[in-house]
Amino acid sequence: MTMADDRQERIRNRAHQIWLQEGQPAGHHERHWHQAAADVDKEDAAGKSAAKKPAGAGKAKAAPKAAKPAAKASKPKKAATK
């Protein structure tokens, strides 16, 4: 099976899924086919960009946040003198 045959088969399967999800409407096969082709192209583009990145080369994790300094202790209140 060639790559073109594989793509056609994927589009056919995706168009069928769309048709089923929409309740099997008659007369929308062309729209389903174009939508399926766009979906397959998106999948292929996402797969190629993911394949170019080395494993673990995703977004870097943020450094842990520094602990907040302890609240200042308030001065003790003076006792009222009489």
Results as ranks from 00 to 15, higher is better:
Met1Ser: 11
Met1Cys: 05
Thr2Cys: 13
Thr2Met: 12
Asp5Met: 08
Asp5Leu: 04
Asp6Ile: 14
Asp6Pro: 00
Asp6Lys: 08
Arg7Ser: 02
Arg7Leu: 15
Gln8Ser: 13
Gln8Glu: 13
Glu9Ile: 11
Arg10Tyr: 02
Arg10Gln: 09
Ile11Arg: 01
Ile11Cys: 00
Arg12Gln: 10
Arg12Glu: 06
Arg12Asp: 03
Asn13Ile: 06
Asn13Trp: 02
Asn13Thr: 05
Asn13Arg: 11
Arg14Val: 05
Ala15Val: 06
Ala15Thr: 04
Ala15Ile: 03
His16Cys: 06
Gln17Ile: 13
Ile18Lys: 02
Ile18His: 01
Trp19Leu: 03
Leu20Gln: 10
Leu20Trp: 04
Gln21Val: 01
Gln21Glu: 15
Gln21Ala: 15
Glu22Asn: 15
Gln24Asn: 10
Pro25Ala: 09
Pro25Gly: 10
Ala26Ile: 11
Ala26His: 13
Gly27Asp: 14
His28Tyr: 10
His29Trp: 05
Arg31Pro: 00
His32Lys: 03
His32Pro: 00
His32Thr: 02
His32Ser: 03
His32Tyr: 13
His32Asn: 14
His32Ala: 03
His34Thr: 09
His34Asp: 11
His34Ile: 04
Gln35Gly: 01
Ala36His: 00
Ala37Ile: 02
Ala38Arg: 12
Ala38Glu: 15
Asp39Phe: 00
Asp39Trp: 01
Asp39Met: 13
Val40Ser: 01
Lys42Gln: 11
Glu43Gln: 13
Glu43Asp: 14
Asp44His: 08
Ala45Cys: 09
Ala45Glu: 15
Ala46Pro: 00
Gly47Lys: 08
Gly47Thr: 09
Gly47Glu: 13
Gly47Arg: 12
Ser49Arg: 15
Ala51Leu: 10
Lys53Arg: 11
Lys53Ile: 06
Pro54Glu: 07
Ala55Cys: 07
Gly56Cys: 02
Ala57Leu: 05
Ala57Glu: 13
Ala57Pro: 00
Gly58Cys: 14
Lys59Thr: 06
Ala60Lys: 15
Ala60Arg: 13
Ala60Gly: 02
Ala60Trp: 00
Lys61Phe: 06
Ala63Lys: 15
Ala63Cys: 08
Pro64Tyr: 04
Pro64Asp: 05
Lys65Pro: 01
Lys65Gly: 02
Ala66Gln: 12
Ala66Cys: 05
Ala66His: 10
Ala67Ser: 11
Lys68Trp: 12
Pro69Met: 11
Ala71Asn: 08
Ala71Tyr: 04
Lys72Leu: 14
Ala73Ile: 05
Ala73Gln: 11
Lys75Glu: 06
Pro76Tyr: 02
Pro76Glu: 11
Lys78Pro: 02
Ala79Trp: 04
Ala80Met: 05
Thr81Tyr: 03
